[in-house]
Write a protein that binds this DNA or RNA. Sequence first.
DNA 1: CTAGTTGCAAATGTTTTGCAGTCTC
DNA 2: GAGACTGCAAAACATTTGCAACTAG
Lengths: 160, 160
Amino acid sequence: VVGATEAERELEVLLRAGGHRVTDARRAVWQALHAADGAHLTVDELTERIERVAGRTGAIDRASVYRTLGLLEELGLVRATQLAATDPVRWERAHPDEHFHLQCASCGRVEHHEGDLVARILEHLDVGHGFAVQAVELTVTGVCAACRAHGEDDGHPVGG
Amino acid sequence: VVGATEAERELEVLLRAGGHRVTDARRAVWQALHAADGAHLTVDELTERIERVAGRTGAIDRASVYRTLGLLEELGLVRATQLAATDPVRWERAHPDEHFHLQCASCGRVEHHEGDLVARILEHLDVGHGFAVQAVELTVTGVCAACRAHGEDDGHPVGG
DNA sequence: CTAGTTGCAAATGTTTTGCAGTCTC
DNA sequence: GAGACTGCAAAACATTTGCAACTAG
């Protein structure tokens, strides 16, 4: 639809800066991640979406999706998270550490939240323990306001 | 050769209370987890240690270790954590949410830290968003004081 | 005795890897 | 062109499950 979005440009610049090539597979993964704005997708979900969205280019092999995600992670463009130990890894566009995950055990939805909490953590650690913080991963599990209202407490997983 | 440590008793009581049986496999897993005091072990590491420690009893099958850990988790005795997305799940004795993980990217060591940070997070969320918190998972990655002193810089700083 | 547990082996599901052909630079 | 990428298929891993034998209660 659009020729080159800002995000697409960002991808190209970063790829070239790192001596990597700009390919359809990489563009496709990046676009799919954008289209899913904010959602946390598994490699399978991602691959499936790419098939739909980038019909002309054809599907991208799972292996390439894995390789691409690994690369994008190195470039700091995406971030992997594992919400449940038994679930496959999920990917999302990189977001600053100041955001953290709020996962509802009832409806399964994951929200991002912003606050000064992470900033406080950084402060606390640096001052108190000489620990040089690189990244903070904060995930809070519980029941969201909506589910509490419905009284849904048993916890039935949701599709997506 | 100690008959029954306090921890061992705790295990038996909780097992019986839940209508489960007290078996060698379960004792072995529990003891191995204690012997590794504070460490985060994979199922493989755990299985290997059981082989050494409980030589007389013989080895415990991986499948049983998995099943046992699942049970102990239900009983609230152990806790699973995933430090890196590509790593297998690691297990440790349960600890209160008020503790959080401090992982050194250089030496790989994981420490537990205690503080009011998690408590503040709970407060903040409950007051501000009507989110009923069940669990908090906080992992901070960085370089520990010791490694900083040695100037061991095998990694590249991530962001701010 | 009875039914919960275990060990084994095979199944499942995810992620990685070797290689030959393809496409970017 | 040269060499970085991709697709494909098979391999490598982590975790789960079916089932017969075992054993705690």
